[in-house]
Every structure is written in C-alpha cells, then in structure tokens.
Simulated assay, not measured.
Amino acid sequence: MTFYEAVGGEETFRRLVHRFYEGVADDPLLRPMYPEEDLGPAEDRLTLFLVQYWGGPSTYSQQRGHPRLRMRHVPFVIGEPEREAWLRHMRVAVEELGLPADLEQMLWKYFTMAAKSMVNAPS
C-alpha cells in the first residue's frame, strides 16, 4: 500500500491543501507570492503534485512536466520568514487531517525538508 492509499487518497490531499490555502489567503507575507486573484489554480497544482509525490496518479507530470520545484520557485524571494509562515499554515492543515501518528510524522518530515530546500534568500 502506498502512502497515498494509506492516508485516504486524493480526497485527503485536497482537504490538506485547501486548509493550507485558507491560511495563505490571509497571510501578508505569503499571499503576495500568488499573483492570481483566485488561489484555486495554485491549490490544484499543489494537490496534484502531492498526490503524485506520495504514490497517486501522475496527473501533475502529465499536465505540467517535471516538478522542478526549486526552479519554479526561483522568481520568489523565500527566506526564513517565508519558510516559517509556510510551515505554520501547513502544520495546521496537517494536524486537522487527524492522521495516525506515524503517517503524520512522515508527511511532516517531508514538508519540513521541502520548505528548507525552497529557501533562496539569506536572512
């Protein structure tokens, strides 16, 4: 069984990402990084990426090609404050899923690693 299946599939990732973007929508540090007025497209992209990363369908790559996360984030200044804000909103979203502790820990470990790797500006 993949992690994707173990956590409940696409619906779980949709809930996670939707809750995350509810926080981003009102965040004065992160919201300016999303030029679209509607966060829906960003929500869809992150959902598809996470679904694929964790063992679900490869729709993200079919639609957008290789993830190239660092390259896609280069236009944005991401320092420690942005990383911390991103993690703060993601933490709330992860906790609200109510996953078993081992699965939550795996997910959180990935998010902390990914957030650290996106930092491209010195503090």
Rank of each mutant, 00 (worst) to 15 (best):
M90E: 06
L87D: 04
D44E: 15
A93M: 12
W86I: 00
T47M: 12
R88D: 14
H73F: 03
Y53D: 01
P57G: 10
R83I: 09
R83W: 10
V92S: 08
V74N: 04
H73N: 03
G56Y: 06
T59R: 09
M90Q: 09
S58N: 10
S58P: 12
E80M: 04
G55P: 13
Y53C: 00
R88P: 04
Q52D: 12
V74W: 09
Y53E: 02
W54R: 02
P67I: 05
E80K: 10
A85H: 05
S61R: 13
V77N: 04
F76V: 12
V77D: 13
E84F: 00
W86P: 02
T47N: 08
S58C: 02
H73C: 01
M71S: 09
V92E: 11
M71C: 02
V77K: 13
L50A: 13
E82F: 01
H89T: 08
L48S: 08
G56W: 08
R72A: 05
F49D: 08
L46A: 11
V77P: 00
H89K: 07
L87M: 11
M90N: 08
R45A: 14
P81G: 01
I78L: 05
G55S: 12
M71W: 09
R45D: 06
G79P: 09
R64H: 14
H66C: 02
P81W: 02
R64K: 11
T47Q: 11
A85W: 07
V77G: 12
R64S: 01
T59N: 00
R68G: 03
Y60D: 00
R64F: 10
R70L: 13
R70C: 06
T59V: 14
G65P: 03
L46V: 14
R70N: 05
G79E: 07
H66D: 09
